[in-house]
């Protein structure tokens, strides 16, 4: 109940933030703009729309997740707004969970609007409705849910600027860790292989959640692998949120 109160208020904060609308409008304009590229391309019109559209959703979603996520806790501490909340009959972990769910809700709405825009656009251009496109958007959402958890974890002990930097670094590393492992397995020595393995297991394997290429090029996606990816993401998120709770639980608010 108290978690829901915090979550709804966090959502309300995002909804009343003008920057969010600016990002959303910009993203929709970008989506619409991709149709211009279609008219000047020689072949594969529908690929361009899907490709650019999914990239667009991914990037703007990442922006929202990183910048709202990193401010989620640290801004409350900096602005001292949490003094009157933490001193109310609420557990600290409830506060963290509420803040997190509020931002996930915000992301859901934003990715939802952008996703519907893209699916609508693809439908107008090709005349086919695409379940696979929806699936790709859903996996982008899942990825953003994970990125938000990373951002919040950093924001529980670091400044917003540093947290944003760390989060973006981890985002890139998370997309490259599988490739890194592959490279190390082929060319590296024993030590390099071990390092790549350790990194691979520690870093979030974000390439797992990336269905963009398969969707755009119509490559078959295995249902079992997808289900496993979802389970992987859920466990990773749970671990991050628990870590954020543990850090927040012990924090002093000077």
């Amino acid at each position: 109940m108290r978690v829901a109160v915090i979550a709804l208020n966090t959502f309300k904060e995002a909804v009343r933030d003008r920057i969010l609308y600016a990002i959303l409008v910009f993203a929709l304009v970008m989506l619409a703009g991709s149709t211009i590229l279609v008219t000047i391309s020689v072949d594969g019109e529908e690929k361009i729309i899907k490709d650019l559209g999914l990239a667009c959703i991914s990037i703007f979603g990442l922006l929202i997740a990183t910048f709202l996520g990193t401010g989620l806790v640290s801004k409350e501490i900096e602005k001292r707004t949490l003094y009157t909340i933490i001193s109310k009959p609420i557990h600290r972990y409830q506060f963290i969970l509420g803040k997190y769910l509020g931002l996930v809700m915000t992301l859901l709405v934003n990715v939802g609007v952008m996703g519907l825009g893209l699916i609508g656009l693809a439908y107008i251009w090709e005349g086919t409705s695409s379940v696979r496109l929806l699936l790709a958007v859903l996996f982008i959402f899942l990825e953003l849910v994970l990125v938000t958890a990373i951002a919040m974890l950093f924001s529980a002990f670091s400044s917003p600027a540093l947290s944003a930097l760390f989060t973006l670094c981890l985002f890139v590393a998370g997309h490259l860790s599988a490739d890194l492992r592959l490279f190390a397995a082929q060319f590296g020595g024993a030590a390099t292989k071990l390092l790549a393995e350790v990194l691979f297991f520690l870093l979030p394997n974000l390439s797992r959640l990336n269905l963009k290429d398969q969707t755009v090029h119509g490559i078959a996606i295995d249902g079992g692998t997808m289900a496993l990816s979802v389970v992987y993401a859920i466990f990773y998120v749970a671990a991050l949120v628990l870590a954020a709770m543990a850090i927040f639980q012990r924090r002093d608010f000077k």
Binding site: N9, K12, E13, R16, D17, K79, R80, T81, Y83, T84, S87
Partner: peptide, 14 residues
């Protein structure tokens, strides 16, 4: 318990 912090600061958007 009721608590008023020093120079309280609240959510400005509410």
């Amino acid at each position: 318990v009721g608590f008023l912090p020093e120079q309280p600061s609240f959510y400005e958007y509410l």
